[in-house]
Nucleic acid binder design. Structure first.
Lengths: 342, 342
DNA sequence: TCTCGTAACTTTATCGTTGACTTTGGCCTC
DNA sequence: GAGGCCAAAGTCAACGATAAAGTTACGAGA
């Protein structure tokens, strides 16, 4: 079996506490003793039992992450960045996927609470804040990622969604689009922010959305992705006036939308320029390479991890902190109407 | 603070053990007492402290998964499936990414060992088996995923790679390709198996690879993906006789290869038909939709999770078990030379 | 009436580690 | 040479839960 402090103590004729003190670099240990203990530890490949340590300290050196979909590159990248950052500090990370299902998400969170993780990170699919009240009751600190809830004072790390909407829309306007439509997402902070940015960008050009030019993706899981984009774009194409620019809530819906546009015999970007959001890894290889707003997911992950570590190590709880990552426009063929890259 | 058994016991004037027995559905508890305890548990939202439980039982109800790259859809899907399956049984999952770096992987595994996870699942980037000897020393059961090591008798779940190679190559031959080339992967079981399958499929048509028609992706991380595929394909195009069919080790290298082929002014699939492996989610939306061998990653994940749970719950260790998942050919435009889908 | 069995609890010891106090012995100082 | 001080240990009691063994009280059977 795995070696314990007791074994090492017996082997060397010392007390358990002395060995434990060496382990934790406690000052009152003689140089000779320290050397002997360390040597023995290496020999038996000693690994402290973290369960026992947790029991005493109340900490687990463990974080929990819940995302709506691990398959989505945006969340996968965040997860990867968090894992990489926290690992270096000796923290391990539970990761789970809620499948965009609020109930499943609550279950996952309960599991994490039962495991007494030091901090919970959630990209939430909740529509109410009830679940977070529950976390607060247990006094476990938590950080919201990507999506936040209106008036709640919580730790948050995510992209500045209004900036996303403005960036994408301004870009389309610069490409001489004058009838920019928007396929908006479900009723969560990200979609609301991007819609807001879209409107503000239009407003700064003294424009407003034309009738029927803001369409919602269906709210069922099935309609969030390509299928939803396809349906939404078909509706858009049937609108009173046809759009000449399209800003999609995310890349997958943009894929669907592009298919609908091409199926209708229209050209991208000549007839309709398209911009997505997320800048997923394969944008370059698409039938029409997709322009997209990069949300800096790696950055989000790193910042979230840093914040989590700070919270985990803090003696007492501090004020909630919100961090907004700046998005970045990545222009590709789907919206480049002028070859000079203007 | 979180409620403990002791609190509940005090509240009701019972002993801690009695409460604990209720928690675990122990028989010798009176109906009335049981009801009172359960009621109180609900009231204070009692969550057992798993650290304490682990200390006594030696189990953690925790599994660890290490993959080379969480961003890769193949591994992301496996991770998701494992997480979904194990969650239902009350197990939580540590997930970490080794970035294809053997040393990092060893570190991750050491962390998991220190945390005394019940089972470790690894899609390994090791080139030697040393690391697994280390796991065995700690008596922690482990399961290899996707990649295995020659003669080692270990638990394994993965695709049948020789079948992958045969499936892809036979398909190309059926499409009337006669000069089928192969971009092979690094020197690990998956690449070796696929190469073997490729050769066997050719042999069954009384063919052998032409000179220069089997090319390796560079071994550095950078050259595994699109870049590697691009470089390799350029070499292939310069070969003595130009291939008319190409089976790529994975989808990302296939993307690079297709770019090289299109850049050279050739048509896909008319001049060169291309098949990848992995069937990643966006294959349909590429410039030329990519035919690919589906490795059934979700299936791999589910089987691995089931095996892990069986091992975790078993009283004593059982014989290592290897499970091979059957691959499936998904034909798209990049290799469909006959419109009738023949 | 006495023993025995059993249902329903309680006591005690234990898991591996740590925090807060002792203890021990040697050396220095006044 | 007594007292104090310091370095380098050691003791004891947690942490929260469980397993095993012990204690009641009560009713049944001979």
């Amino acid at each position: 079996m795995a070696a314990r402090l007791k074994d090492i103590a017996n082997d060397l004729g010392l007390s358990v506490v002395t060995v434990s003190k060496v382990l934790r670099d406690h000052p009152d240990i003689g140089a000779e003793t320290r050397k002997r203990v360390l040597k023995r530890m290496r020999e038996v490949n000693y690994q402290p039992n973290l369960a026992a340590r947790s029991l005493v300290s109340g900490k687990t050196w463990t974080l929990g992450l819940v995302v709506p979909d691990l398959l989505h590159p945006f969340f996968a990248e965040i997860a990867k960045a968090i894992s990489a950052t926290t690992r270096k500090q000796g923290y391990s990370l539970f990761i789970s996927s809620s499948d965009e299902d609020p109930e499943l998400e609550v279950q996952e969170i309960k599991q994490l609470l039962a495991r007494r993780v030091d901090v919970i990170l959630v990209a939430s699919a909740q529509s109410t804040v009830e679940c977070f009240r529950m976390i607060e009751e247990q006094k476990t600190p938590y950080i919201l990622i990507d999506r936040r809830f209106g008036d709640m004072e919580t730790n948050f790390v995510g992209v500045d969604d209004e900036a996303v909407g403005m960036l994408a829309t301004s870009h389309l306007l610069e490409q001489q689009c004058r009838r920019v439509a928007h396929i908006r997402g479900p009723n969560v902070s990200t979609a609301i922010g991007r819609l807001e940015g879209y409107k503000r960008a239009l407003a700064s050009h003294h424009l407003t959305p034309l009738p029927g030019h803001v369409i919602s993706l269906g709210s069922s899981g099935d309609h969030r992705g390509e299928k939803g984009g396809y349906e939404a774009a078909k509706q858009l194409l049937a609108a009173e006036t046809r759009p000449d620019g399209l800003f999609c809530f995310n890349d997958t819906s943009a894929l669907g939308a592009m298919r609908a546009i091409l199926d209708a015999g229209l050209r991208i970007p000549e007839d309709i320029a398209v911009v997505g959001c997320g800048n997923f890894s394969y944008s370059d290889f698409l039938r029409v390479p997709l322009s997209s707003v990069d949300q800096g997911s790696e950055n989000i992950g790193r910042h979230a991890a840093d914040l989590a570590l700070r919270i985990a190590r803090a003696k007492k709880q501090s004020k909630p902190k919100a961090e907004y990552i700046a998005p970045r426009m990545v222009v590709r063929a789907s919206s480049r109407r002028f070859p000079d890259g203007r």
